[in-house]
Each structure stands twice: as C-alpha cells, then as structure tokens.
Design a protein around this nucleic acid. Structure first.
Lengths: 330, 330
DNA sequence: ACGGATGATGAAAACGTTTACGTTCCGCGC
DNA sequence: GCGCGGAACGTAAACGTTTTCATCATCCGT
C-alpha cells in the first residue's frame, strides 16, 4: 500500500532505522489509515518475547490478592508488560497444569503457591523462565524470592502486647501448610520466649476464615486461666474473634485484647478498630514485578539479591487497649 | 525422537485422531520425557486463536474490581481461557492505547470503561473482535453489554426508606461522568417521584471516596429542614457519612438513616451495620465472561440478547432503622 | 490375485513477523 | 571516469505449529 516491502514496514514501525524519515512517515500514515496492528503471535514467534508476565496465584478472594495484583499491574504496566493472571489452584496438580500452560506464553513468572515445595518447583518450573517466588517457604538458589517479614511483624506484635501488660496471649493460627502462618507463629513463639514466657504459648488451629476465628475465640474463652489477649494470624479471624467476644459479653480490650495481621481495609472499621500488623501488599507485588523485570532484562545477572524481605509495620488501634487515641478514621 | 514427523506429533498431542493408539502413546511419552511444551505463539499464529481474553478495567482499587476479576477468572478458567488484565486507564487515550495493544493478543474483550462513549468505542474497538461491555452507558447494537440494575436497586432502596417512615432523603452522588451513578440517581429520583415526593429530591456531589461522603454528610446536616435519611451512591461514601454523623453526635439510625450501594464486605462490619444494595459483582463478571465465551464460539450468533441486566438485592441492616434484628453477623 | 477403499503417516505450505544478507543507487575521492 | 563506501530498500529465510494433500500399506470383496 505504501509501495514498500514488509521489511521496510517492520523497520519503520519499530523505529529500527534504515529507512528515510520520509518513507517512515508515509508508512506510518498508511498503517494508521488501515488500522494496521501487528500480529503479536507472529512477532513473538520470532523474537521469542511475549511482553507478558504470568502471575500464578492460589486464589483471588479477598483484599490481599486484590492488592497484590494491583501492585503487580502497576509495576508491569510501567515496564510495558502485560499481565496474565491464573488463579484458583486448589492443589498441586492443578498448579502444575497452569504452570505448564503458561510456558511459552510469558516472559517471566510470578509464583505464589503456598503448597509448593522445592520438589514441586524443580519438577514444574521451567528452568529457562525467570521466576520470582512470593511468600514461598522454599529456599532455592535457583529462583529469586520475595517475602513478607511475617516473623518480625508477629514478634513486634507480641512484644507490644506484653509491654502493655498482657500476660496470657493465645495465638490463632491459619491453615497448616502455609508459609506465612508458620512464620507468624514462629514470631509469636519467639516473642514470648524472648520475654521468658515461652511456656505460655498456646496455638489454636484456625483456617484464616472469620468463622474459624469465631470458634477459636470461644475455645479461648473456655480456657483456664482465661487469656487476656488473642492474637490472630490474620485480620478476618481477629474479626471473627471480636464477634465471639461480643456475643459472649466480654469487653474488648478491657478484658481481652484482640489483634490481627494484614491490616485489611476493614480492620479500621470494625468495633473496636483492630490493632494489627500492616503488610504493604501492593508494595510486595510491585517489588516482585520489578525484580522479575530486571531478571528478564538481564538474564545474566547472577542473582545478586536472591531473597528480599518486605517489612511490616505495627498499627495500633483500639482493640489492644494500648492507645486511647487509637481508632481515628481521619 | 519418536521416529515420527511433526505432523504426527501434532495429531497425537491434540488428539485429532489419524494416528494409531500405540504411536500416540509413544509420542506422548516422549513428549513428557522431553518436557515438551507447544509454542503457543506459533500455534496461535496459524489457528488465529490465542485462548486468551482481555479485560480492560479503569482501575484495580477496591473490592469491586477484585470481585469482578474473580468472577471473570472463574468463568474463563471453566472454558480453558486465559485472562489478560489491563487497568488504570485514567483517560480515553490511555484506554485507546491499551485497546490497540490488546488487539491480536486476545480472542475477545471485556471492556469496563466508564468514560467511553459510542464514538470512542467505534473508533477504537476492533470490529472483528467479540466484545462485551460492562456497565457502559453506550447502547450500541454492535456490541453486547451487561449492566447492573442500578436503577432498580436505587428505586427499591428509596421505597424502603419511605416505607419505614423517612420523609427527607438526600442522595450523595458519585463522579459526574459515570453510568452507575447516573442510573442510581435516576432510580432515586424515580423512587421519590413515584411517591409524589419528586420535588424533595436533593443530590449532593460526591466522588465515591469515603472522604467525600464525610463532607457531604456534613453538608446534609447543615441543611434545613434536616434530612432524616442519607442515601449514598456507594458504600464507601455511606461509611464516610457514618463517621461524619458519629463525629457530630447524631444517632444512626434514630435521627438519620444512612444507606449505601454495593454491599462491599466491609458494609456489615461498620457500626451500625450498613443497609445497602447488594450487587453480585462476581456474578456480573461471570455472566460477562460467559457471554463473551459464547460469542467467541459462535461468532455467527446474531446477538439474540444484546443487553443483559444483573439484578440487585436490598440488604437491610441496622443503619436504616427498619429492622431490629439486622446487623447479625452469623 | 487384483482393484479399491480405508486408515496411518509424511511432505510441504501457510500463518505474519523480524532480520541477515543482497542489491541498487548515490555521492565522493582518486 | 572509475571504483568504492554507505545508505535505503528488497529478498528470503526463519520461527514452530496446524492442516491439506499425497503416499503408502493393509485389508476386503470379488
């Protein structure tokens, strides 16, 4: 249409030079007039690049994943990359299938797979594909990884509760095979141990749902001596615990303090507002994506920073009773 | 490796028949042993299918988009389709770029673009690509569309407030150029008009943020005569309004009822729990994806159902004072 | 035993790009 | 005037599949 070969069109549209400014202009004009859009499959067939990264997530439920995706998307679009999301991988085989299917479709992989162990990853992760593990308990030299400082956050929370006079702190854990839970629990135990109260540790088994928090709080109430603080491994369980205590007529924080983990948006709106540990989730996603982007651009980079930890932050509100000015919304 | 041609490999792996069961088995075995994964770009170069659908969203912030994506993902994975998300399209030009870039990359498009008008869509939407518009005010014959019944939901809410004795209901609107806002406002006016109270309509201008709800509620308090109900166009503004009333020492719902729209997860946890209109957002995403899937499979289908409306549901909690048993969490 | 139908398999084209390599043309220095 | 270098552009190969068509073997009916 512009009386040039396809080669010149390619050169003109990609700005690779080798064409006169005038012909380039002409080609561009014709291209927009014809609404020409390059066929990305053909392009990536030869360039071996898809300009897409894949995010493998266990689920899409709740504020956590929403924020994570937002952070990833933010960093991805800054680099001009597309985002392919794949979720709801209940078990390992399903995740393996998704992993295989992503292969060849993406330039890099962001994997958050709580149930993946090292063997699974070795088996299913393509070696050639740059990969960043998010909150994985796998410590592999072969893949980059980003973690939330669950341990530190939980430890600080316990220290705070102890400092404000609580003596008997019970911990409501989440699903058994979960890296975050393990780390938070470890932080809880370490916090107690550091104060010489290691033998007072009590861990109740929840599953991250509000309902399990409700149940476990009821159990905690039945204990003797009764605890004076409940530290839940996530905010939803803490909220469930608040309901349980409200139903039982137990005053929070006067009789029992309740704290959570994550600082989901809802945490500040419940009554009383929830003391919790803020995890900058979007930041985690962004950092992971940035890391992946760098790996894609410089594959030779000999993993100078194999493991990065995203810090957490104690957010004190009214539910722990430590601050009388907590709970403000504005 | 299996002593067969590439053609047989293709046939064996795709199960197209034309190969002996024995050779198929042999080929499959070799394939898994070699960890062979078909190059999707090459495949879609010839099949003209990418097995991917693109979702164009204005933003990724908040529970709404989280749920929407979840619904879309659910329906997409049920059909074996991948999901390419693209967000944060502040203005039309950015959306146009994203739209173009998606072209050739996806088999279908899910577009939620509040600021897109018919001209924009005609200009930028590829005619060949099946497209479903979500909550768009554009009524085009050329594209399928799915809407939330904002109008009906708002009308029902007003009727409920009137039925429970409220006389002066003010409405806090959202961003000016927003289809949902327009429809909700229309429902509000219609609800009042149907009761012969059309002239009592008062619309305050918010912007969907909690902070704007706070400000507008303050304004409402200053009005004379003072309203006895505040109906916000979304839950976040209603929550802001609750804060404002709490700060002003106004009792909810005794003195003023407050209601929202969306039924975000947080709505039931605020104090008092918020009466609102539930929008089954995940269902909306699922329905949109299903529709798109059908369009992709049967392109000849002459759009028998050009416009689908997803129904809404009144959720009565304590903040409107109409139900003394509202606010239960379990 | 032979022709033809059937079914498995291979050869090769096609998809739409990018890019290495030629070719042409122009200007310049000798 | 002639050769030469370089810029602009075209030619064609390559990417890895799918699919059409041809080929070949096998089996069946006569």
């Amino acid at each position: 249409m512009a009386n040039v070969s396809v080669a010149s069109v390619s050169r003109a549209l990609n700005g690779h030079g080798g064409v006169t400014a005038e012909t380039q202009k002409r080609i561009r004009e014709v291209a927009t007039r014809l609404r020409y859009v390059p066929h990305s499959a053909a392009r990536s067939l030869i360039t071996r690049r898809t300009q897409t990264i894949g995010a493998l997530l266990p689920d899409l439920h709740g504020a956590f994943f929403s924020e994570l995706i937002r952070g990833i998307d933010l960093a991805a679009r800054a680099r001009g990359l597309y985002l392919l999301v794949s979720s709801s991988h209940g078990d390992a085989t399903e995740a393996a299938i998704a992993l295989r299917a992503m292969q060849g479709r993406v330039d890099g992989l962001l994997v958050m797979s709580p149930h993946a162990d090292a063997a699974f990853l070795d088996e299913n992760l393509p070696i050639v594909l740059p990969t960043v593990l998010i909150n994985s308990h796998v410590r592999s030299e072969r893949h980059a990884a980003l973690d939330v400082d669950d341990f530190g956050g939980a430890k600080v929370m316990v220290e705070h509760l102890l400092a404000s006079g609580r003596k008997r702190i019970v911990f409501i854990a989440g699903p058994a095979v979960n890296h975050d839970v393990e780390e938070r629990c470890r932080g809880y135990r370490e916090g107690l141990a550091a104060a010489g109260l290691g033998d007072t540790a009590v861990v109740l088994q929840g599953d991250f749902t509000e309902e399990s928090g409700y149940r476990m709080a009821k159990e905690a109430l039945a204990m003797s001596p009764r605890p004076d603080a409940i530290f839940a491994a996530n905010d939803m369980m803490a909220i469930g615990a608040l309901s349980a205590l409200a139903d039982a007529g137990v005053r929070v924080p006067d009789e029992i303090a309740v704290t959570g983990f994550d600082d989901i948006p809802m945490a500040r709106y419940v009554t009383p507002p929830l003391t919790t540990v803020r995890v900058r989730i979007a930041e985690l996603g962004e950092a992971a994506m940035d890391r992946l982007g760098r790996m894609i651009e410089a594959p030779e980079d000999a993993a100078p920073e194999p493991r990065v930890v995203v810090s957490t932050e104690l957010v004190v509100r009214a539910s722990c009773g430590a601050s009388d000015k907590a709970g403000r919304r504005h």
